[in-house]
């Protein structure tokens, strides 16, 4: 039992919890963005096999679900900088590290889900581009509404971290 306690103590240090927060903030929105972009890119492949000239217009729709991954990275950087992990002199108490872990949660989960859902809307937008290229601006706007929830999640994470 003692060895387990030792291991637990070694893993759940303040620094490690803050790192876990930064890791979550990068990994989860990253997964979401990858999934979202993947969906739109697959839909685009179908479109450009019909009409390669529309690729330029499809790029904006493909880029939309990328932002959550970037937001996650911004939050992760901020955790690394403010906690001192990046400067190298961090010695956080468990509670302090845990604070960063929880502060990362909004963008981690909000980013994950909103990126996938935004990808769905943007992929549907690709079919708008196929049938009514002139209306693609409206499809972009619909997709960017989903973005708001990633922005809100990022905002709360950033305000907590700062």
């Amino acid at each position: 039992m003692e060895i387990w306690a030792e291991i637990m103590k070694g893993i759940f240090t303040g620094n490690n919890l803050a790192i876990a927060g930064a890791a979550l903030a990068t990994i989860l929105p990253g997964i979401g963005s990858a999934r979202g972009v993947n969906m739109v890119a697959k839909a685009t492949a179908g479109l450009i096999s019909e009409d390669p000239n529309k690729y330029g217009k499809s790029m904006l729709l493909q880029a939309l679900p990328m932002t959550q991954g970037i937001y996650g990275m911004v939050a992760a950087f901020l955790i690394m900088i403010t906690s001192g992990i990046m400067g190298g002199d961090a010695a956080l108490a468990v509670g302090e590290g845990g604070y960063y872990l929880f502060a990362a949660c909004p963008i981690a989960f909000g980013g994950l889900y909103s990126a996938i859902k935004q990808g769905e809307v943007a992929a549907a937008g690709i079919s708008v581009l196929a049938k009514r290229p002139d209306a693609v601006g409206k499809a972009v706007i619909s997709a960017s509404f989903v973005e708001l929830y990633a922005i809100l999640a990022l905002l709360i994470s950033l305000l907590l971290i700062l």
Binding site: V74, I81, L155, L158
Partner: peptide, 20 residues
């Protein structure tokens, strides 16, 4: 507020990263 802050904070983080 949300959009205004996010633009500003991301810019700050970029500056912080590059300064280091």
């Amino acid at each position: 507020l949300a959009l205004g802050l996010v633009a500003g904070v991301i810019a700050q983080v970029i500056n912080m990263m590059t300064n280091m």
